[in-house]
Structures are given as C-alpha cells and as structure tokens.
C-alpha cells in the first residue's frame, strides 16, 4: 500500500499542478464564471483529465485515512472491514463528482 501511496502521490503532484494552472492561473481573475466552467468541462480531454485527477486524489486521500487508522493497530479482520467501507466511500465520491460535472455539462 505504501508503494501505491507513493506512486499516486507523484502522479498527484503532476495532476494537481495541471488542475491549478488550468482552473486558476490561466483564467482571467483567477476564478471561472459559470459559462466558463461549463465550456471548460465540455472539452472531452479536460473532462477525462479532471476525472483522472478525481480518482487519483480520492484514492490517495482514502489510503491516507487507512494508513492513519492502521497506525492505531487494528486487527486483520477490522482492516478488511475498513477497506470495504473506504472502497465503497471512494466509489460514492467518484460517482457523485462525475454525476455532478456530467449533468452540468449535459444540461448546458
């Protein structure tokens, strides 16, 4: 798990920089207007990139949560339950965010 946390961490530094530059640095005034957001997300490449960022950041975050809880010394059985809960939570987060951006783009 450490190795995945390291690899996703490296990937995140790249994706986060892209995310910040694309959403704030190149935008006039630093924040997008409503139309601008929809226009931005309508680009399939951007949509794929942001979804990839979302998946990597969510898994990195939840693996981090598991690492902290494991540091408290839980049993293998409790760890299995914890993993199931975190995977479900991650799936919900990704599904919600994809639904949110997808529905906004489709409505426009």
């Amino acid at each position: 798990m450490w190795i995945w946390q390291a690899l996703s961490g490296i990937l995140l530094t790249v994706l986060l920089v892209v995310h910040m530059v694309a959403n704030h640095f190149v935008v006039e005034g630093g924040l997008r207007t409503y139309e601008d957001v929809i226009h931005y997300l309508s680009n399939p490449f951007i949509f794929a990139l942001e979804t990839a960022f979302l998946i990597v950041v969510t898994s990195h975050a939840l693996m981090g949560v598991r690492a902290i809880i494991l540091d408290l010394g839980i049993s293998p059985a409790a760890d299995r339950r914890l993993k199931a809960v975190l995977v479900a939570l991650g799936a919900v987060i990704v599904a919600y965010a994809v639904w949110l951006t997808g529905s906004v783009v489709l409505r426009a």
Binding site: T33, Y34, V37, A97, L100, T101
Partner: peptide, 15 residues
C-alpha cells in the same frame, strides 16, 4: 466537492 454542487444549482448560486 460539496461547494461544486452549486454548479448544479445554476448560475446564481455559482456567482
């Protein structure tokens, strides 16, 4: 992600 849900509630909420 919660804040971004304002996108679904339309332009006024976002502004």
């Amino acid at each position: 992600l919660t804040v971004l849900s304002t996108l679904a509630r339309g332009r006024q909420a976002w502004d």
